[in-house]
Design a protein around this nucleic acid. Structure first.
Length: 289
DNA sequence: AAGACGGGGTC
DNA sequence: GACCCAGTCTT
């Protein structure tokens, strides 16, 4: 049962044990918070930290990023992964400049219309940057709620309608408290109620947790297999991008990235990178856009 | 609803 | 070597 006292326990825990992250600082801009949310999509905090610092020093306002050469943006993205996010972030900056006067828009609908911003990020920016009440549900929050209230080990890969209903139901009515709760429960999922080996012995929700009460049963259903990475197009795209970040490369140089005679990924991946706008081919040379 | 899309740390 | 990470976009 997750009642007001459970909410309080998590908020108190957060005040005590929450990390001091730069995008959580009181002087963080809405734009800085939005940038952090994009970078944190599928990328852990520790790897985002140094890239975010450099990024914000270099492009403190949407207008700055909007005007930057895309090649610089992709190099600054470095190895955060999913470089299409960097492209979308710059497109997002340009949309903010052109359609919102350079200010991060307020409201879920306006935010969701921006490139790279989906349901989660729109809610996160609404809560953390604009301090409004929003149903934030990332993988951490979904896991905590599913365990605590439903007694299940894992939330699954998709944000279901019933999970949305659960998150909505639990969200405190008062704005300030809802913002604090979102922040706190997300941090709880990141630090305590982790996917692999949760630290229930220090969890503020332990007295409220249905999953713990049931003896932490393993997942009943079949868990989705993690997709392999070795030998995939994603891996090769990453290798090509790593090469291009160092500078323009000849087609011959790119072709050498093939791992063996049977590896036919290079031409296909190069085409897909060009189609995505992540690479440009002119004559026999390949470079960042 | 399922698949594509990086990269690295951890157990 | 599988699993996980403040998801989004496209079929």
């Amino acid at each position: 049962m997750l009642d007001g006292s459970g909410i309080d326990a998590v908020i108190d825990w957060f005040a005590r044990a929450g990390r001091e992250l730069p995008w959580r600082a009181s002087d963080a801009s809405a734009w800085g918070i939005l940038v952090s949310e994009i970078m944190l999509q599928q990328t852990p905090v520790v790897r985002v930290l140094p890239r975010w610092q450099e990024w914000m020093r270099r492009w403190p306002r949407p207008q700055d990023l909007a005007e930057a050469p895309t090649a610089d943006v992709l190099r600054a993205w470095d190895r955060l992964g999913y470089p299409r996010r960097a492209l979308r972030l710059q497109a997002c900056a340009r949309a903010i400049v052109e359609e919102h006067g350079g200010e991060v828009p307020v409201g879920l609908e306006a935010l969701r219309a921006l490139p790279g911003i989906g349901e989660y990020t729109a809610a996160a920016v609404t809560a953390f940057a604009h301090h409004e009440r929003a149903v934030v549900a990332d993988t951490n929050i979904r896991r905590v709620l599913v365990r605590c209230v439903r007694g299940e080990a894992f939330p699954g890969s998709t944000f279901t309608a019933s999970q949305r209903a659960l998150a909505t139901e639990v969200l405190p009515a008062e704005t300030e408290r809802s913002v604090r709760w979102n922040q706190a429960v997300m941090e709880l999922g990141a630090l305590v109620c982790t996917s692999r080996s949760p630290h229930c012995e220090v969890c503020p929700l332990a007295p409220h947790c249905a999953w713990l009460a049931k003896g932490r049963p393993a997942d009943s259903g079949t868990r989705a297999r993690t997709q392999a990475f070795e030998g995939t197009d994603r891996q090769m795209r990453g290798r090509i991008m790593a090469l291009l970040r160092e500078g323009p490369a000849s087609r011959e140089r790119i072709a050498q990235l093939r791992t063996d005679e049977a590896d036919d990924r290079v031409p296909r991946c190069l085409d897909s990178l060009v189609a995505d706008g992540l690479a440009v081919v002119e004559d026999r040379t390949v470079r960042l856009p």
